[in-house]
Amino acid sequence: MRPLTEKEAKAVFEKLFKFVGKDVEAFLRKKEKESYCFRLQKNKVFYIREGIMKKSTNISRDKLVSLGTQIGKFTHSGKFRLTITSLSLIAEHAKNKVWLKSSAEMSYLYGNNVLKSSMARITEGTPVNAGVVVYSMSDVPLGFGVSARATEDCRRLDPHSIVVLHQADIGEYLRNENEIG
């Protein structure tokens, strides 16, 4: 377990910025009088309360599996990917949102992209290639992805074209139970 280097921190915050925008600052602020920090352990990035982090230094690096909330992980080539465990944090400050029709929820939770036909609503002014959080109609965050079309283009699209490219969904908790730390 160690703090992020400058390069790593840049990769992490750039990714978060895509979803959250200027609200990335919120991750540095205190939450309910508790301050949080970012830690790297075996290529995984965790968002963790400082008090717990301090205590976890007692556990040796090879034995430490997980701590706090995992935000994402670095790939072997050094890219940063958000994992589904970061959903609650992103959803709190999400800038661009998409709401799914209740009929399309299951399809999305099996790892499929969001089609125009399955989309109920979308945040106004969502650009292309922006990070998008996917919600159900009852405002439960289901996952996140990347917008394939801007909001303006969505109106003219045919119902089978992809609007949001799937990155993660809460179905992974069941599908990839072993890998989620």
Partner: peptide
């Protein structure tokens, strides 16, 4: 300092 500086940079570059 490093984290705050990075966040500042990312925000200014992104907006």
């Amino acid at each position: 300092d490093l984290i705050e500086e990075t966040v500042r940079k990312v925000i200014s570059a992104g907006s």
